[in-house]
Design a binder for these strands. Structure first.
Lengths: 338, 338
DNA sequence: TGCGGACATGCATACGAATGCAATTAAACG
DNA sequence: CGTTTAATTGCATTCGTATGCATGTCCGCA
């Protein structure tokens, strides 16, 4: 277990001072001759700067904290993968925390993140108390919320155009001739869930309709299944269901097709939200609103970087439009063009 | 952006030396009186030790590197979640890297992990060159492979009992009266894929059978689908297919049921491996060999910790048995008891 | 009362790289 | 060719915590 090569070692071998080595590797100015000597010595010794030591001085660790909650919803593993790769490409590394969705848990997590002097925090579908928000601001740690907004928090966020998406689903279902349209909503404690619902209700209202029923599915498969059973076994079952995300929508489809023997889309149309890879599988073939993960990730990374580099840049709320993806789980209005 | 509270600040306020504060927080001995004073001052100031500074001295960062490849296979997000929580509970944090499965990429990743002086590395379904293995050994960084072994690497690994699992699937299918049994195998570049196949072929051999066909599915849905089509459209289609993991098995089911219109399990039985949550969904209802994630994670964490604490402990290869989970995708032999 | 030992504490230094400052050198200009 | 200015470079210090060493304290036991 040999001790690692330090900048001292490189300095000695290159015949320069430790500061020279440091300057070469931190991009400060140095004469071409020195750079060459240092680089050569460094390669020969296999020197790599110690990011921890560097972090002590500069206060920048090169680490970004990522807080995630629902890893069983396929949307998040996918997003995690993209985020991770994008940030790696920018030279950052990702410290991942799984959040219990209690505010208590989040509190501890943010503590530990700040302990490690992370350069920024990305939260995926996780809420932060205003107290935490302030603490991060005080420590100068930028925060970007992914796939969730928070009113009045003054935090940057990147979401899809949820209100608009909900509205488009309503228009689509109405155009398809559906009249008894129910909504198994995303968790109402999340902006995402609320916004989709709001847009959806607005959209129906424009057509002079009201939702047949609205049930909070809490982003949970079991709750969504139960809601489906309740809806279908009521006196006036729906002829269409808009589900707050694909994760629940798959459960809804399962329940309709395999448990209740309902024909989709002839008896009931189902529309989801996210367009996770699963949705395209033949077993589900789910009509859904796509959240453009790639562009959302790009926007998140870009926002993060600009907040890191220009600390007094005001936070921004970015919304990205996504198309409605037509598949087999919902009747398609004749002549419908996206 | 106030500067963080340091052990100096606490020392001043408590009327003791900085060393005293350090000793209180690093668990070294101190008189009850000092401990009390320090704790009090620390709480009042909101002091938290800086893990980076600590890491500089001790060489222990409290970070464990996790290298993951296939996040679209539901098995891994689930494992990641459990691993993360288990390690968090032990006071460790997780630096996540997404690996392209090129050896080149892995090389760079391990470099960066060692740069951060991680206390250990866990790889999930990722291979390491012997050169890397040596480097880690030289740096004194323990490595544990999750869900993959590597012969002769001298690395610790935690897998399920893959050979045995494959064999049991063979016995099960034979007992079910199947005679033309095909195998869409896990990637033959992975020990996991090879072992399952080996056990399976052995199991058939014991019954005097040979596999109808063996196709490497490379853990890829598209390849598995194509393999399914090829098999079914051949002159002698199989009456059972053993698929190397659930991720591919779902694609196989999709292809059989929705594309080829084959009845499962009447025309063809399908058995998978992993028992990911998806497998239990009504849409798939997949008979499969369970990999006991919880116990695998426990074993992984335990192995990791013991290697960290006792550096000269020999690496161990742990195998964990998992049951065959009977569901609807495969004919159940009459009188079959698990 | 006196002495040895166990324990507590402070001082000083180390970890590895970044950086302000001063000294040195090279370049540029008249 | 002298002088001003800019560019390099080294020295010393810093970040925040851990730890070896020396000193100091208190207790027990004879």
């Amino acid at each position: 277990m040999m001790p690692r090569v330090t900048s001292q070692d490189v300095a000695r071998r290159a015949g320069v001072s430790q500061s020279a080595v440091s300057r070469v590797f931190s991009g400060a100015s140095a004469s071409p001759a020195t750079v060459a000597k240092v680089r050569k010595a460094a390669t020969e010794l296999g020197y790599r700067p110690n990011p921890l030591a560097r972090a002590m001085i500069t206060g920048k660790s090169g680490i970004i904290g990522l807080v995630v909650a629902y890893l069983d919803n396929q949307f998040y593993p996918v997003a995690l993968e993209r985020l991770s790769k994008a940030l790696q490409a920018e030279g950052y590394h990702i410290l991942v925390f799984m959040a219990e969705n209690s505010s208590d848990g989040i509190d501890r997590i943010v503590q530990e993140l700040t302990d490690y002097r992370v350069d920024g925090i990305i939260t995926a579908s996780v809420a932060m108390s205003s107290e935490l928000t302030e603490r991060c601001a005080a420590e100068g740690i930028p925060v970007v919320m992914f796939n969730r907004g928070q009113d009045g928090s003054g935090l940057s966020s990147v979401t899809s155009a949820n209100v608009d998406g909900g509205r488009r689903v309503a228009e689509f279902l109405v155009a398809g001739g559906h009249t008894r349209i129910a909504h198994i909503a995303g968790w109402q404690g999340s902006s995402t869930g609320r916004d989709r619902q709001r847009g959806f209700v607005e959209g129906l209202a424009r057509a002079g309709l009201e939702p047949l029923a609205i049930i909070d599915g809490h982003y949970d498969r079991d709750i969504a299944s139960k809601a489906t059973r309740d809806l279908m076994q009521s006196a006036t079952p729906p002829d269409a269901i808009f589900v707050g995300n694909d994760h629940m929508a798959c459960a809804v489809l399962d329940t309709l097709k395999h448990e209740l023997g309902v024909n989709v889309p002839n008896d009931v149309s189902v529309v989801g939200y996210d367009d996770v890879p699963l949705a395209a599988w033949p077993a589900f073939d789910l009509t859904t609103v796509r959240q453009p993960v790639n562009r959302m990730v790009e926007a998140t990374v870009e926002t993060m970087l600009s907040q890191i580099n220009q600390p007094d840049r005001p936070p921004q709320q970015i919304q990205i439009e996504g198309p409605l993806i037509l598949r087999g789980s919902a009747r398609i209005p004749t002549g419908w063009t996206n």
